[in-house]
Computed example of a mutant assay.
Amino acid sequence: MSSIHANMDICGRTPAFDRNIVDAVSSRLTAASGAAKSLLLAFRYRLATRRIQRFSDHRLHDIGFERDWDGSVITRQK
């Protein structure tokens, strides 16, 4: 006999889920998903930036970037 069947024998009905708990868990999962997506995008941006660090100044200019005074790559200012 399962716990649901035992509860039905005792109470005469199935246990009800509290909607507030379900909403709280759902919102936490949504927030965690958003944080994971943000971290993944930041990681991919960092990899792409590291990849173009090796390009020459002329090639960076061709694809819309330039070197800052400290050598970091930034979007070209128009």
Rank of each mutant, 00 (worst) to 15 (best):
Gly34Gln: 05
Thr14Pro: 02
Ala6Leu: 07
Ala24Gln: 15
Ser2Glu: 04
Ser26Cys: 02
Arg67Ile: 03
Asp70Trp: 02
Thr49Phe: 04
Thr75Gly: 08
Ala36Asn: 15
Asp57Asn: 09
Phe43Asn: 11
Val22Lys: 12
Arg46Trp: 07
Arg50Thr: 08
Gly12Met: 13
Val25Thr: 03
Met1Trp: 04
Ser33Gln: 14
Ser72Gln: 10
Ser33Leu: 09
Asp18Gln: 07
Ile10Thr: 13
Leu39Asp: 13
Arg67His: 04
Glu66Ile: 07
Ile4Cys: 00
Asp18Asn: 13
Trp69Ala: 14
Met1Cys: 05
Asp62Pro: 01
Asp9Gly: 07
Ala24Pro: 08
Ile10Pro: 03
Ala31Arg: 14
Gln53Asn: 06
Arg46Gln: 11
Gly34Leu: 04
Met8Pro: 01
His58Glu: 14
Asp18Leu: 05
Ala48Pro: 06
Gly71Met: 00
Thr14Glu: 05
Gly12Val: 13
Ser56Asp: 07
Met1Glu: 03
Gly71Cys: 00
His61Pro: 01
Ser2Asp: 15
Ala42Ser: 09
His61Leu: 14
Arg67Val: 03
Thr30Glu: 14
Ser72Cys: 09
Tyr45Pro: 01
Arg59Trp: 02
Ser26Thr: 05
Thr75Phe: 08
Leu40Lys: 15
Thr75His: 02
Ala42Cys: 04
Arg13Tyr: 11
Gly71Lys: 00
Trp69Arg: 14
Trp69Gln: 12
Ser3Trp: 07
Ser38Gly: 03
Thr49Pro: 00
Arg28Trp: 00
Phe43Ser: 15
Ser72Gly: 09
Ile21Val: 15
Leu60Ala: 02
Asp68Trp: 09
Leu39Gly: 15
His58Tyr: 06
Ile63Lys: 14
